[in-house]
Amino acid sequence: MKIPPYILLVLATLLWGGNFVIGRAVSEDIPPLTLAFLRWCVAFIIFFPIAFHQLKREWRLLKRHWFIVIILSLTGVTAFNTLVYIGLHYTTSINASLMNSSTPIMIYILSFIFLKEKLSKYQLIGTVLSLSGVAFIIMGGSFTRIVHFTFNKGDLIVIAAVLCWSIYSLLIKQYATRLPGQSTFLVTIGLGAMMLFPFSLYETLSSATAIHWEWSTFAAILYVGIFASIIAFLCWNSGVIQLGANKASIYLNFIPVFASIFAVLFLSERLHSFQLIGGLAVVAGVILSGKINKQRLQS
């Protein structure tokens, strides 16, 4: 029985939305670098038997593009998730997921700067609208924070994570026809875990960041390693193949919706008016830019 693409895409975004809430929930029990390291160790163990045969066939191709593969691992596996988990020590999961929704806009900006791709006036409007929403969230709805520079450092760290993911996404787009999907993902996971190991070891040996081993800690590691990494990845890729990248991209806006619902239900976080206003501006800007971009591609 073939699963409809919209179910696969919604499931992927639901699992990714849960990742923000899990990262926040265990922020006092496990340090961020160790959580990221253990996440990718679990993901590698689970994904290895799935992609190993493809990796054997495509190893020479990956070696040919070794530098790009390392950059993909550094930005998409090592830096993005680690920065998100660090940021969640200082900001709410609702804030983090809302700012993550600005990724498409960040990709437009990077494409304009480095690839010299032209932006339509509607894409510019969407970019300004989304970035204004992000700024409003960071300011907590108070413009006085600009004057006093009293921003939440967790929000700024998440913005850095979004920048890393945007670079990763741009490279994936550029090398989509040259790098195989599953074997590339497996290698980037392995490299990412190796990059994170010395930092995780330092955290583990530091008494100030000791891990509190409870059932919830194990459950969180399994969730982010299996559900938020492998299952979400496979569901998303399958949905994109069936529906197409342009139509599938709009489903990413479900991530902050699910994250906000989970945060309110399980973490007792409050959805403030500034988050709602800023989040709507971010999503509206992304939809506007994506819709215009799609029309231009079809014309």
Rank of each mutant, 00 (worst) to 15 (best):
A232D: 03
C235H: 07
C235M: 07
I231W: 02
V224E: 00
W236Y: 14
P256N: 12
V240E: 09
F227D: 05
L252D: 09
N246I: 06
I261D: 13
S229Q: 04
V240L: 09
S229G: 02
I230S: 06
I241V: 08
N246A: 07
F258N: 09
I241E: 15
S260T: 15
A228L: 03
S249K: 13
A245R: 14
L234R: 13
F254K: 08
A259W: 14
N253H: 15
L252Q: 14
I250R: 15
V257W: 14
G244N: 10
V257Y: 13
F254C: 04
I241N: 15
A232L: 11
V257I: 15
S229N: 01
N237Q: 10
S238P: 04
C235L: 05
L243G: 02
F233Y: 10
F258K: 15
L243Y: 12
S249G: 12
I241P: 06
C235A: 11
N253K: 10
K247V: 00
S249Y: 11
V240N: 12
Y251K: 08
G239K: 12
P256A: 11
Q242E: 02
V240I: 04
G244E: 05
L222C: 02
Q242F: 12
L234I: 14
I230N: 00
I230C: 00
I255D: 01
S249N: 12
L243A: 00
A248C: 00
S249I: 15
G244V: 12
Y223N: 04
C235T: 07
L243V: 01
Q242R: 14
Y251P: 02
F233A: 05
A259C: 11
W236E: 03
N237G: 01
L234C: 07
I231T: 04
V240P: 05
A248Y: 13
I230G: 00
C235P: 10
L234V: 10
A232M: 10
L234A: 06
W236F: 13
N246Y: 12
I261V: 14
K247D: 01
Q242P: 04
S229T: 07
Q242M: 06
S260P: 14
L222W: 08
Q242H: 11
I231F: 05
I241W: 13
F258E: 08
I261H: 15
Q242L: 08
A232G: 05
K247M: 06
A232T: 09
N253E: 07
I255A: 00
V257A: 09
A245H: 06
P256Q: 13
S260Q: 13
A245I: 06
G239W: 02
S238G: 02
A248T: 00
N246Q: 11
I250T: 13
F227I: 03
C235I: 00
A259G: 11
S249M: 12
Y223S: 01
S260C: 13
A248M: 07
G239Q: 03
